[in-house]
Design a protein around this nucleic acid. Structure first.
Length: 756
DNA sequence: AGAGCCATTGTTTTT
DNA sequence: CAATGGCTCT
């Protein structure tokens, strides 16, 4: 393997990035510009040309999927699997550090990871324990408060306690942390924060890793939050090489703490950063690209970048204004059918929408059209109830103090441990500061429970202990099998009637086979490969206290972490050729020859709640940009004039993003016959259509004459508020709720409305 | 323990 | 329009 093979397939900008010798590099990689390629080739370059050792490289990605893809692409380039390189998500890497250095991190060796679902349950418990009203402090909001503070690196002590409700929130945060500590569980945000704090506060550990990881590579840098940024900065230290790749125009996770500003900050914090822009797009035709560029250019907070391509103009972007959501679905399917009839695969087509709820109409239509499809998102394997039950038993076997797991299965299957007994246990736990397991044992020892409850509880404790004893020394798969059966879960779900029970027992079976097939070595970020560290790297990485750095991780611990960190795909990968349905968020990173962006109506997309502030709107616009740039050959953008939402009909205006595409780049497809809008339109695509150039004055380009929520005055009815509007141009009507006369529909053309 | 009833409440998602 | 959660009643 020589240098040519690594750099030959690259364009100038890509090559400049891959071969850079500056300490810090920022690659601004536009959509479809070969971002992953640059990352992969950079690693190959470091190994083969700069002669870096594998263990000096740490590559961080945003999702597990991306990490897997990166690993898969490095292999052929280097002619074999690359052991020693640490790669994975920030969470997986943090987890690995914490497992190895649990002592330094102040965690029990058997600490367990708590997912968002467990977290919410715990918060509800804490609310109850503090006797706070959960309608005044909605658990979701509390979770948001805790998580976003952790994402920003703030512990309760660092928080202002300005007003009483803020004080309560901080108290909840504190109490929540106590519960976590007591039961030895760690939530997602905690994984990161704890890892950063541990490194920060332990000079020897920090020095070891700073010296070891001479090369840091971070993907999707625009999606990093404050703690992740701190993590990078900490590990880089004063000398480490940092190579970050990102695209400010594709930052769509601001709402969960991601900070685009990190890109700007990076250049300040790492003086001398070389900035490389990848602007040549290899994915889309020029028409699509120009349209996408036009939309994103409306954002003010940009680093600036213009994608170009040397592919041909291609087809124009098509816009379709449907009567309603059913018409929208029919139209979409009809176009897919044409595409497929022309010899394409269904899997080349993607239907995108803003929110998951919108998939339903498409699913129904696809079903009745007998067209196979696959919906991304939804309930994932390790999030299923029966799987979580089984995992809870396993976690409890690992760590008796895991309260979340105790709570979950103490009475599953039912064994006569009711609310009353549990309250007793919880009271005891609160009084003594113990875990539920410890409290249960104490209550039993003191014989302070009624006989029946006592024997039921006794039975549960014994069951867990017996399971623990019986699986010792067995291979992982047999351990899981023994627990699934011995816990009674399998029997319980087998009794459940109907398909549901069957599906659940099947899933439990799948869990067992997942465990049988689980190879810790396939989860490189989860299992510490101590052998490599023990040998020390040739360039002389230190050993701490002369022993291997950190503790090894058992297969069971690795499996449980894998289940928590990588919740598994929503549906088992079916290899049938099918149409792909997903949200605009989950399409990031993918590409399709034919893309439909649907539901382009103001209020839906951009979403109502984002329209209210400017930054929110810019993020929505980036989401639109992400969607548009997924299309390789053909892009359709559709909206519905009428849509049933939350059980009532709404009349939306075409999305403002549609108006941001220059008219000469799109063709608007409209029904040829202007019929009166049918009440329940569903014309199966049979309606003759015609494609026309959009003329100024077309419905799309006529801004709404009146804003929803505006106050208006009518010569006869007096003052009121605009509730709704419908139609455009001469037919435009508005619904106004008059203070005296009540709600009325008025035709804009005739009603002499005056805004006030 | 489980069925049945009423009220509430609705983005985006990974880890 | 649902899905969810809390509640009561058997």
């Amino acid at each position: 393997m020589d240098v040519t093979a690594i750099i030959a397939p690259l364009n100038d900008a890509q090559r400049e990035a891959v071969t850079t010798e500056t300490r810090s590099t920022l690659v601004l990689a536009g959509a479809g510009s070969g971002k992953t390629r640059v990352l992969v080739h950079r690693i190959a370059w470091l190994l083969r040309v700069a002669h870096a050792t594998p263990w000096s490289i740490l590559a961080v990605t945003f999702t597990n999927k991306a990490a897997g893809e990166m690993r898969a692409r490095i292999e052929p380039l280097l002619g074999g699997p690359q052991g020693g390189v640490w790669s994975g998500t920030f969470h997986a890497i943090s987890h690995r550090l914490l497992r190895m250095h649990w002592k330094e991190a102040g965690l029990p060796q058997t600490f367990q990871i708590m997912d968002s679902d467990d977290q919410l349950r715990l918060i509800k418990k804490v609310l109850k324990a503090l006797e706070l009203d959960d309608s005044r402090y909605p658990p979701k909001q509390v979770a948001w408060f805790i998580n976003s503070n952790k994402d920003e690196g703030r512990r309760p002590a660092a928080l202002a306690q300005s007003d009483p409700s803020q004080r309560q929130m901080v108290r909840l945060y504190e109490e929540y942390e106590k519960h976590c500590a007591r039961s030895g569980v760690v939530d997602f945000a905690e994984l990161l924060l704890r890892a950063v704090e541990t490194l920060r506060d332990d000079a020897r550990l920090l020095e070891h890793y700073q010296r070891r990881f001479a090369h840091l590579l971070i993907d999707e840098f625009q999606d990093t939050n404050a703690v992740q940024y701190a993590f990078v900065k900490l590990l880089a230290g004063a000398n480490g090489g940092v190579f970050v790749v990102g695209d400010d125009d594709q930052s769509i996770y601001g709402w969960r703490g991601a900070r685009v500003e990190n890109i700007l900050r990076f250049q300040q914090d790492f003086p001398g950063t070389k900035v490389v822009r990848l602007e040549q797009n290899y994915r889309s035709t020029n028409g699509i690209l120009k349209a996408a560029n036009a939309v994103i250019s409306n954002n003010t907070e940009r680093l600036g970048k213009n994608l170009w391509t040397d592919r041909g103009e291609g087809e124009t972007v098509k816009v379709y204004g449907a009567y309603n959501e059913h018409d929208e679905a029919q139209f979409t399917i009809e176009r897919i059918r044409r595409f497929v009839d022309a010899g394409h695969a269904r899997a080349e087509c993607a239907i995108l929408y803003r929110s998951n709820a919108q998939s339903r109409v498409f699913e129904e239509a696809l079903l009745s059209a007998r067209m196979p499809y696959r919906v991304y998102g939804g309930l994932r394997f390790y999030e299923r109830q029966e799987i979580k039950d089984a995992l809870a038993y396993l976690k409890l076997i690992e760590n008796r103090n895991d309260d979340a797991s105790f709570d979950r299965v103490v009475n599953t299957p039912t064994r006569g441990i009711g609310a009353k007994t549990l309250d007793e246990i919880r009271d005891e736990a609160k009084r003594e500061g113990w875990s539920l397991w410890q409290s249960a044992r104490s209550l039993l020892a003191r014989k302070s429970l009624p006989a029946r409850a006592a024997s039921a509880l006794e039975g549960f404790l014994r069951l867990v202990q017996e399971l623990d004893d019986s699986i010792e020394g067995l291979p992982l798969g047999e351990q899981v099998d023994a627990v699934v059966q011995g816990s009674g879960l399998l029997e319980m779900y087998a009794k459940e009637k109907g398909d549901k029970g069957e599906a659940r027992t099947e899933n439990l079976g799948e869990l067992v086979s997942a465990a049988r097939g689980f190879d810790p070595d396939d989860a490189p970020t989860i299992v510490a490969d101590n052998s490599i560290e023990a040998q020390g790297s040739p360039d002389g990485a230190v050993l701490l206290d002369g022993r291997a750095v950190g503790d090894p991780i058992t297969p069971m611990a690795a499996f449980l972490a894998h289940a928590a960190l990588e919740a598994g795909e929503g549906q088992a990968a079916e290899w049938e050729d099918c149409v792909q349905l997903m949200t605009l968020h989950s399409v990031k990173g993918l590409e399709f020859p034919l893309v439909f962006m649907t539901g382009l109506e103001d209020g839906l997309f951009p979403h109502q709640r984002s329209v209210e502030d400017g930054r929110g709107l810019e993020e929505e616009r980036r989401l639109c940009y992400v969607g548009m740039t997924r299309a390789m050959q053909q892009l359709y953008m559709t909206y519905a004039e009428q849509r049933r939402l939350y059980g009532s009909d709404t009349f939306g205006m075409p999305s403002r993003f549609l108006r941001e595409v220059p008219t000469d780049l799109i063709e608007e497809i409209r029904p040829r016959v202007q019929v009166a809008r049918p009440m329940y339109a569903s014309h199966g695509g049979a309606l003759p259509e015609t494609a026309t150039r959009v003329a100024p004055g077309s419905s799309l380009y006529e801004p709404p004459a009146i804003k929803l929520g505006a106050r208006v005055r009518h010569p006869v009815f007096g003052e009121g508020v605009v509730l709704n509007s419908e139609g455009q141009g001469a037919q435009a009507r508005v619904q106004v709720n008059f203070e005296r006369a009540g709600a009325k529909w008025l035709v804009m053309q005739f009603a002499k409305l005056e805004t006030i």
